[in-house]
Nucleic acid binder design. Structure first.
Lengths: 402, 402
DNA sequence: CTAATTTGTTAATCGCCATGACGAAATAGT
DNA sequence: ACTATTTCGTCATGGCGATTAACAAATTAG
């Protein structure tokens, strides 16, 4: 029940259960949950054959999960084959819920997702947070969280944890925002300013976006590079279904990969960083537009209308992305590059030049470049789902909690 | 589409044992082996307290490992403290041995390493393999392997497997050399041409070099970027103590990261790749030297003598490495960059410009740049140790084999 | 209507580790 | 020197978790 907090990052199956009989049992409970969650309603016998345990063993595991309210018995399956029909098991829609929150530059959003992955409640507040101090923003966010939790509870759910996506770098303690340039926040510990009754995880929005892609994407492979742009350019590396975090938790900072080493000076101290060519500000300048709110939609609109300046600007950004990604692809040999966040909406005009550059510079069949289906919803959904995944990864940890 | 891409690579603790009581037992056997191997002679009680099992449980595990010939009882410890002294346990020096082999451009080498990590036999043959066809090279290598195995057996060891390091890309099956430009080999399956009685693993020399660094390095962290250069430039990424292999097994190809996107044409199809600035050929040209054998030693000698052309050439290579590594460091946030292989000998003249470039372009404290102690021995030792690690990772698998 | 097949449960058993007690072998204190 | 204390390794016992084998229930095939 008391989870080892500083062992690994709370999200992701990082924490390893001990090699004892209890640990084995917990891992097997998790395997049952994952199997039922991934492959829809299943009988005990079907689960048993999938995970390689006997029907008897699965029966006791399932009993425990039903008693904990994590699984539900749907009743006898429609028999199409010979033999006694099984009793269908499904993940419960009335158990724990993951609460996801997003602190965007121009909005706050919160949602609740049940174990089935369905969004059961949401709340949004529009309005810029640029330059506001953390305190009032988090008070406001707490209000939205309580609102969403109340609505989820009316539906028979109980909150298992809160995950917050922020537009900035987060320390490996998963609570402290080290640097969020567009909010102008530095070294803020969000812990004391959010509801104390919920286990908290804070992470970069690009990280949560990539996890959403991994968990909810249509055909997302287990090894990919996720690139998203909101104001800066965020990247995330997923290897073998796990998010790569780096020593300090800063991995994935694609925005400051050098594209032209003698290029324009960047705020980071370097020269010719990707952000100087494909960042929002740079693209707007190249397109002859002024900064402001919701410029991404404007860019997409103008490009769709055939505006040559905008198209040229986006083509240039795509080329720069292609150069930066060539390095990343050579280094990591991923199965795909996924364009997410604001890049998803601009993909039609970015992708051709990006892919050309990538194909020209990498040997063999170029790495696939795909576009996220989730787009700007990614970080919020990824956050909420990270809590759900934590429950699936160790059902015994939450079993007694409600 | 069932993708076996992430199943397991024969080397490394990739394969996961099943969550059954037998699997648990095997994992605990492995934990005992690792503990004794890492922390020198230990009593049963010391092992028990380290891995969190009871003395009784460790006793039965140790009994089994001694019966299998993997552990040895050294006898009573010298008592310095109160209480009955323990009986020291050590990894056996007469059990399985890992056979490592290296196919270099200018030599062949084979060695045998026991469970204690000591090299117990070696054999080398000098002479170029450039352009020779695989068949005669592997016949020759097989001869050296048999010679080393015979010597190891005379010392009471038995060969647990063979790992071969090659200067080229290896498919994820760990047997097929996809492309080795400096040997001019393409799509060669080494399996049929090597001793059939030994379990075989083939891998890139840079990969084995980085594993050697991880396992044998003085203070090597669990997250680092390994850069080595023999003829081309090889890189390897180690994350959380595991080698990152990529979808096709080609991860770590630092040589073709773009440094100056409009730079000179490269054989890979791109322009301005790192290899165009820091590859052996490029450095020799910049230093005004002609290609040939053992040019690295010549470069080091001339640089040490103060040759300005050579120093300038190496400084330029360091700058290019710094630019390429900036991208990699931003993407992966490693704890260190390790210069290995031929770069180790040239580090004094490469490092200043490399570090300057890295510090200038990355925010916060720059990533540490260290030099490998193993240098050109890395790949061979890494190969042999990979076999040893496989035994430590699953002692039960080899228990009955001798 | 019977035979065959599949499901889920139950009772018996096995494997693995934990617990607690014990003798053995050292030190510390008198 | 002798006893108390501490620690080590082992043994017998028990608990927990999965396997095995047997069985009743519910369906299809003939």
């Amino acid at each position: 029940m008391t989870a080892p907090l500083h062992e690994t990052h709370p999200s992701g199956p990082g924490r390893r259960l001990p090699d004892t009989q209890q640990g084995m049992r917990r891992r097997n409970l998790a395997r049952v949950m994952h199997t039922v969650s991934a492959e829809g309603p299943l009988s005990r016998a079907a689960v048993a054959s999938r995970i390689g345990l006997t029907r008897a063993a699965v029966s006791t595991l399932v009993d425990e999960l039903i008693r904990s309210g994590l699984l539900e018995e749907l009743g006898p399956e429609r028999p199409g084959r010979v033999g006694r029909p099984g009793s269908a098991l499904a993940v419960s829609g009335h158990g724990p819920a993951g609460i996801g929150a997003e602190i965007g530059v121009d909005h706050l959003a919160v949602c609740a997702v049940d174990l089935r992955g369905i969004v059961r409640a949401r709340a949004v507040r529009h309005g810029t947070n640029r330059g506001r101090s953390p305190q009032p923003v988090l008070v406001e966010l707490t209000g939205l969280v309580r609102q969403v939790v109340a609505e989820a509870e009316r539906e028979g759910l109980w909150p298992a944890g809160l995950a917050v996506a922020v537009p900035g770098l987060v320390a490996r303690d998963a609570r402290t925002v080290v640097r969020a340039p567009n909010l102008d926040w530095h070294d803020v510990d969000l812990g004391p300013l959010l509801p104390p009754e919920l286990p908290l995880t804070v992470d970069n929005e690009a990280n949560f976006g990539s996890l959403a892609e991994l968990w909810l994407g249509d055909d997302t492979p287990r090894d990919f590079l996720h690139v998203s742009a909101e104001i800066g350019i965020g990247g995330a590396v997923v290897v073998d279904g796990r998010l790569l975090r780096g020593t300090r938790g800063f991995a994935g900072e694609l925005g400051h990969v050098p594209v032209r080493p003698e290029g324009p000076q960047c705020a980071c101290g370097g020269r010719g960083c990707l952000e100087q060519y494909a960042g929002e500000e740079a693209v707007l300048r190249a397109a002859g537009l002024s900064p402001g709110e919701d410029r991404v939609a404007l860019l997409a609109e103008l490009a769709a209308q055939g505006d040559q300046d905008v198209r040229l600007a986006l083509r240039g950004a795509g080329t720069a992305l292609g150069i930066a990604l060539t390095g990343a692809v050579n280094l990591l040999d991923p199965q795909a590059v996924v364009l997410g966040g604001a890049l998803a909406a601009l993909a039609p005009w970015l992708r051709p030049s990006l892919e050309r550059e990538l194909a020209r510079r990498t040997a063999g069949p170029a790495c696939a470049v795909t576009v996220s289906r989730l787009g700007p919803e990614g970080p919020l959904l990824g956050a909420a789902h990270s809590v759900v995944r934590a429950v699936l990864d160790d059902p015994a940890a939450v079993a007694g909690r409600n």
